[in-house]
């Protein structure tokens, strides 16, 4: 989130009960060029379509982790077997069929861990003690939030749009 240092700016936190109201306000405010953040208690396809219609790069992390795991798994089994070349049960020292299990498991293990890393990186968590000043507890329960910054002069217009879109609550925080 871009933090605007100017004291002229206001943070507007509007609360909605209905998704269609929220999306109407979102569309009108977006047309006026505001940078908007939308909160919801769960992923909602309609919101995603309007607000977050982009390709999530989390799968790039997954693919990188999985490839690394596959190569690492086979490398671990093959190189350690060559380092200690003990033939057991008449099997070849480098028994590829047996090593498939190790490669397979490490593909999943590193692919999964890389996905977690990617998720944390892209969503910027953990941020345990970093307070999000635009967030309200009801956004995780049964309300939808539309949060944005505007200047003092734009407030009148913004109020009008939010009121006509049936915002239940509009809070303006000064001097952000």
């Amino acid at each position: 989130m871009t933090v605007i240092k100017s004291f002229d700016n206001r943070l507007v936190i509007s609360v909605f009960s209905y998704v269609d109201d929220l999306l109407r306000a979102y569309t009108l405010l977006k047309e006026r060029g505001f940078e908007l953040r939308v909160y919801s208690p769960c992923p909602i396809p309609d919101i995603e379509e309007h607000v977050a219609n982009f390709w999530s790069p989390v799968r790039v992390f997954t693919a990188a982790g999985a490839v690394l795991g596959l190569i690492g798994g086979f490398a671990l089994a093959i190189l350690t077997s060559l380092d200690w070349p003990l033939r057991t049960s008449a099997k070849a020292v480098v028994s590829v069929p047996g090593f498939v299990v190790v490669g397979y498991e490490l593909t999943i293990l590193l692919g999964g861990l890389a996905t977690l890393l990617g998720l944390f990186f892209l969503t910027r968590v953990p941020q345990i003690f970093n307070r999000d000043i635009g967030y309200k507890p009801e956004f995780s329960s049964n309300k939808f939030g539309l949060v944005f910054k505007c200047s003092k002069d734009e407030l009148k217009d913004v109020y009008e749009i939010l009121r006509t879109s049936n915002a239940e609550d509009i809070e303006v925080r000064d001097r952000i």
Binding site: R37, Y39, S40, V51, L119, I128, N130, D132
Partner: peptide, 11 residues
């Protein structure tokens, strides 16, 4: 510190 905004939900 999870807060569910639309971008986060997408990821």
């Amino acid at each position: 510190g999870w807060r569910g905004d639309a971008e986060k939900w997408k990821h």
